[in-house]
Design a protein around this nucleic acid. Structure first.
Lengths: 233, 233
DNA sequence: ACCTGAACACCGTTCAAGT
DNA sequence: ACCTGAACACCGTTCAAGT
């Protein structure tokens, strides 16, 4: 207890894990994943590169911690948003989607550190809603994992796309136009389906498509539940 | 035409995009993503590092090309495997899952290069089966994207996990045991769901869970189709 | 206990120079 | 046209030395 009090009393500008993580988030938001450098970080914090290693194991650890800070905040806010399990799952998914969209580096941080704290946190919040849905014990695992992976997968892809478009300083519209032009140039036989989708590619709304996929999974869940109804609780 | 003939006539050991890609795949399979280095590649090919840049734009281009080679092979093989659209989607998904499992670096290559050739190839093959399923034109896009993202997301995660376990030279069982132990050490209130899932974590079969998610999505699709039946074709 | 900063062992990429 | 390899501008990480 004495120690905890002491650590709070440290001089304001001393180095700490928290300060390093906040600086890392700032750097990542400002200049992307390649902007996170121990040298840049040291300069921002007005310290030596080696000092950071006293509070952080390595770059991967730092990236995961920065990601986890954001994910934890997002989930805490999404907590009190909706009333039914279904709408709460949608709300959690959408909140995570938007965090990844605003901080594209979280997407790749998430895929690089599977089973780490940020992923577990997401699994927990989703799982609780899946349970509240009345899904039988032995299928909760699969359902929660499917939702989790969908969210990370689709949300992360969207974030990478958005980041790419921004880095090219390109309007979203002309980015999609370029892409559908590239698709139109593909071999007509080999890529028949893709070529026929160029219309939808230009018109589609990322957020809506994302949520449509969530709804598709939730619909599938209803079928499974009707087939084998919940065996009490 | 003359030029094409000429290029086939080059001396056997001369550098070419294909030879570089094959060497890259070998390097990636043998020593993971960090093993792909222009220096290591140059040594393998008995040439200078700069020479590679004549055939390949940069490292990202090379990684995407290596990934695409494997994905194209996988899809070509999965082509003739099943008879109904449903079983064909399952077969495509499983084949991709196994390629990612055997070559874990393809997972991250796929997420780093969205909208590139490997992703488009997958979208095409999945989309063709979705269309064959009789899904109305205006929902084919969402369904194909959901499936694609699920496959890349879940398959990629599984691959990273598998690679991590291998890199630690750890049995899968003891890896999962360590993980479920870590989960058991989590806060009882904050991580109630996760802690209750440790049993399923140990028993679960990655392949089966993956396919269960695919089936969940396909079930959801049946619901949607019943609600709004295909409007002729 | 915590910080400094030079040093080490790497990277991807470029480019004058060769053939 | 294609290849060479030295050179450039970076990295993450370590570690003796300081306070």
């Amino acid at each position: 207890m004495a120690k905890k009090t002491q650590s709070t009393e440290k001089r304001e500008d001393s180095l700490s894990r928290e300060r390093i993580i906040e600086a890392a988030i700032g750097l990542l938001d400002r200049s992307g994943e390649s902007g996170l450098t121990f040298r840049a970080l040291a300069e921002t914090l007005a310290t030596g590169a080696g000092a950071i290693y006293w509070h952080v194991a390595n770059k991967g650890d730092l990236l995961t911690a920065a990601c986890d800070t954001l994910i934890a905040r997002t989930l805490a806010e999404a907590e009190h948003s909706a009333t039914t399990p279904q709408t709460r799952i949608r709300a959690i998914a959408l909140a995570l989607f938007e965090t990844m969209d605003a901080h594209p580096w979280t997407g790749s941080a998430l895929t690089q550190a599977p089973g780490q704290l940020p992923g577990v946190r997401m699994l927990e919040h989703i799982g609780q809603q899946v349970r509240a849905l009345g899904v039988p014990d032995d299928t909760q695992w699969v359902v929660a994992c499917t939702l989790l992976n969908y969210i990370v997968g689709v949300g992360g892809q969207n974030a990478v796309n958005a980041q790419y478009a921004r880095s090219q300083d390109i309007e979203r519209d002309s980015f999609l136009e370029d892409m559908s032009e590239a698709w139109s140039a593909l071999d007509a036989d080999e890529f028949a389906f893709t070529r026929s989708m160029t219309g939808y590619l230009c018109k589609h709304d990322d957020r809506e498509d994302f949520l449509a996929g969530i709804d598709l999974i939730l619909s599938g869940l209803e079928v499974v539940q009707k087939t084998s109804p919940p065996r009490q609780a």
